[in-house]
Write a protein that binds this DNA or RNA. Structure first.
Lengths: 194, 194, 194, 194
DNA sequence: TATGAATGAGTGTTCATTCAT
DNA sequence: TATGAATGAACACTCATTCAT
């Protein structure tokens, strides 16, 4: 009897060590040898499960994206129904400890750069970008006009990414100040101007 | 004695084709062969002028950074003396056509990722980050308390980077909406709240 | 699982073609390409088994040294127990056909030169030198005073190397006259002076 | 008026730094760049005066050989007319401080190895070998039969080279014990056996 | 299902050589 | 006479991929 779920275990394990390897040496230096050695498997296993290196990287990206959206979904469910709370939930999820750590952040950065030249990755990025935008837009729309909501959503999305990026680059992301800055932005957008 | 002054010409030329190559195939696929072929020179010229590939990439990054700060300096000089105008000038420079184009943007993205694992590049990034922050901070300070100015500066810096990043990823940066969003942020920060 | 035991076969094969290549073109011109081509393998195999080129060369040197000491051990066992016979056995082994042939001699010469600037090789040389000296010294000591034995051992060791060197340089080593000269030296050292 | 003897000065200077460079990094790592840089000249100067790198190396070898024979000639002239003194003079010259030092010894070693595969160098070696042999042979012949003289000359030549080689490899040549060993050999050869 | 030996194209880098000045 | 910028072939080495087991 073949081990049940062996496949899933392997997939998860390999994606995990891929993240760790990218964290430690960077995507450019992450060779199949270094990844599989850390997983204590042979290099051949990658082509077996993922076809080739790109397949592994794409699966890793999908994994990271799914984790982000699971976190967002979780936070949104737990949030109060008002727009402000919903928006805050999205921000909160983005600065979760699950999202703000070495392996995930460095992988994001690497994939941002990589996606400029690989169609598959770019596609995944676009889906993610649009999804976040429409999510934010929908919530802002409940209190703002459509154009205003779109502007607010664009701004907030950019602010989240920017705070995220600067946190990653600084090496020591401030997990308190960053979401605070985004919350403030939400408040400013929602609050009626004089 | 061979041609004098060739040095500067060569340096500029090689940095230029490096940017173009990164634009077209990405940093990962930008080999010395592809760069020098585009420059119609030999590969040996790189070690002659830059020591090695890393030297070329570092020089390229320095070039991009210098260009950004020249643009900022130029805009600031032309701006009115009031804080809002100065801040707008910084934003404007960041969304200059010189900064918002394929070669420069893709290079920035690539170096953001690369700088996570190369000390030299990280150092350059940090200098740039701090410089932008203190620039913004100084201007906000003229109308806000110190803590408020710091928060505003952090937020605006993140927003600029975020808008920039999303523009790069989308492939078609909106050079009108992006600065507008940053201008609005400035206004919100400077305007007295109820 | 791929063929088992290939490792030892490959190692021996690669060391062998390394000797042949050094024989034909010299150490300076012995590139990995020329070596592996002769072995009908790929260049990558060297890094696979020896790490890098230096690893291959070091392994080759170790192989040559081991062969020499195996020959010496063999001859000594077959020799009569008296010092003169033992000393002759050492000389004999050094001028064995296994030691006196193009590949081995040219490799020795090359490594002598190379060992001046590579710590690993120098270490191997020193071990070999000391080993030969103490071997000779022990045998001379059975018939001479300690200081005399040391002088005799030094002289014989130098004579062996010298005969060996001149044989290599001449291109046509005289495998009869050379050991004869060393035998005479042994006799002169052991024979009581007037 | 062109500088007189500029040519000779350059030649000597370049040969000198070649020896120093081989001493410090070895023949394999002695590039034209490293040699000419030490001489504070351009690389082009080599092709100007020596044609190419091989020309420089050959000239260096000739220089070393000439120095050796000048030393031998000097010592022989100063020696008493008897064979033993003449033979001792040759030995003495070989262990002169001019011959026993890093640059010269490492260069000799390197050229021994190199001469196995370069016709020009091998030719120079052969001339040197034959010259030393006939020199020794002529002196031994005055007291020994022709065959005995030939054997003695071969042995002494080998002993000299061997002592020399072992001195070079050990890194700290014993400039007293080495010639002493050769003197003893001369005495043994010349002294009438019982 | 899993291995890892073997490949070989591709990489950055070195360096002797050339040549316009 | 002398320079050093420029070349480009050659090099050691890397690494994704393949495949017999």
């Amino acid at each position: 009897m073949p081990k049940l779920g062996m496949r899933e275990v392997r997939l998860a394990q390999l994606i995990d060590v891929t993240l760790l390897t990218i964290d430690q040496v960077g995507l450019g230096a992450a060779t199949l040898a270094s990844v599989t050695q850390r997983a204590s498997t042979s290099t051949g296993i990658v082509s077996h499960y993922f076809g080739d290196k790109d397949g592994l990287l794409e699966a890793t990206m999908r994994h990271v994206l799914r984790d982000l959206w699971l976190a967002i979904a979780r936070r949104r469910k737990a949030a109060k129904p008002d727009p402000r709370s919903k928006l805050r939930a999205v921000v909160m999820a983005n600065f979760d400890v699950e999202q703000v750590n070495g392996p995930v952040m460095k992988t994001w950065l690497a994939f941002w750069s990589e996606s400029m030249h690989k169609a598959e990755l770019r596609c995944l990025q676009h889906v993610n970008t649009r999804r976040l935008f429409s999510n934010l837009c929908a919530n802002f729309s409940r209190e703002l006009t459509k154009p205003a909501a779109r502007r607010a959503a664009s701004g907030l999305a950019a602010l989240i990414d920017g705070l995220w990026l600067r946190g990653a680059l600084s090496g020591e992301p401030d997990t308190k100040a960053a979401p605070k800055s985004a919350y403030d932005y939400i408040d400013l957008m929602l609050e009626p101007r004089a």
